[in-house]
Amino acid sequence: MKKDVSNKESDSIISIQGLSKSFGKENQVLKNLNLNVNKGESMVLLGRSGSGKSVAIKCIVGLIKADSGSIKVFGKDLLAMNTQQLNEERLKIGFLFQSAALYDSMTVAENLGFPLRRHSPDLTEDEINTCIKAALESVGLIDAIQKMPSALSGGMRKRIAMARTLILKPEIMLYDEPTTGLDTITSREISELMVKIQEEYQSSSIIITHDLACAKRTGNQVAILQNGRIGFQGTYEEVSNSTLPWIQEFFIDKK
């Protein structure tokens, strides 16, 4: 039997209600999606490729405009905001891209300093450098401070991207396939780093992944997208022990 997926909206940091998004007339990716993430909770979103996981989190930060529904972050509806208001809310949300999305033309230090210089104009250069070093230390890559992104490995790029996100001290973290393309050991290191960040910054997060080991390690809750909406939600154990055939397909190689 399916678990009730419409958990309480009132305690939620992120509350998505009735979210729909289509690309063209026939390709409706999200159909009336409901999802709530509570304070300090780490929600893993599983689903098949093309099921709309990335679209859902891109709608949260306003990179993709939803067709209908509401996305409330700290009780404020992001879809009803203008760009300036949305930008204020974006500062509370960190987004880790699948490709890391480091600025190629800037060094690691410049990548980290870029958002800080714009949003904290009162900080002196010394204070900015201290923040950059602290963020790099938290991801264990202080030695890479003067390197260019092209000189970094895939795992290092992900860590630097995390540091760039953390430098603004976001209250919410959105991870788009953080371990894709990485070897097992590096994937585990990234997952552990995500847990460390969660504990250190007391942030709430949504993690999109196909990596079940990462899902198990990082998620308090696991939600599975099916046909554009949440088909099942529960703890990792509840989901993995589910007898529903379509859910078992996700765990078939793990058993």
Binding site: R90, I93, F97, A101, F114, R118
Partner: peptide, 15 residues
């Protein structure tokens, strides 16, 4: 920058 999501990264950091 568009293909590697660097422009999106700029936008989500409110720049």
């Amino acid at each position: 920058m568009k293909v590697t999501e660097q422009i999106d990264a700029m936008e989500v950091s409110a720049v």
